[in-house]
Amino acid sequence: MEENSMAEVFNDIKKPENLVYSKSKVLTDNVMHYCPGCSHGVVHRILAEVIEELGVQDKTIGVAPVGCSVLMYNYIDIDWQEAAHGRAPAVGTAINRLWPEKIVFTYQGDGDLAAIGTAETIHACNRGENMIMLFINNGIYGMTGGQMAPTTLKGMKSSTCPFGREPAQDGNPLKITELLAQLPGTSLVTRQAVHTPAAVRKTKKALLKAFENQKQKKGTSVIEVVSTCNSGWKMTPVESNKWMAENMFPFYPLGDFKDE
């Protein structure tokens, strides 16, 4: 195609009526600080999209964790509280109890939700706090530089299990989502991923369901997103997705554990 005619075609397509996808208005203009290819960005994006599509920007309160996503309040244009490490479910509990008409979600990594904050996680779910708990599981501590997480796989290397996780020394990887599905307070418990367009669409669907559950006061919705940490894993983003599918999914199988 000639240069001129190509420009003409582009101008013909690039019209508002032909718009298929553009950045959510609930996302701010701040460039995310995450490493290239980080799953956090995708989850943030679909979270913002869900908030925009449901028209709940003015009533959604997010609780950010400690970890790579500690500054996520810079990216999604809603009211935020940044909780101490592991305490997001306790912080969210109070907001939910004191402002029952609002929508509350927590966003935590594996160290935050499944190590230091295990008690808060389990008890918020067991009380059935009417909130959404998003759990990013990439099997490593990203922010502090790649240490072992509660969800690090057997044999998987990290800076604090440099020769691979050995259960005798390091304990076993924790399937906390399966555990949370046992609790009567949870209504939706699902494990998803965002490594392919189809996976992203499914995770977004789960999020929409979780927001709907909160509206219907169904209790706690838990969405785990098995994620990559290409810097921590020392791979390219594309390799990380492949490695995740081959190694993480067999131990952390995707799908719904509970949908009541």
Binding site: Q81, R87, A90, A94, R97, H123
Partner: peptide
Amino acid sequence: VVLQAESEVASINMLYGGAGS
């Protein structure tokens, strides 16, 4: 609202959430 928390750690962080709102 009155809630018996799972620990003092949770209690004070519930205060964080409540006070923050």
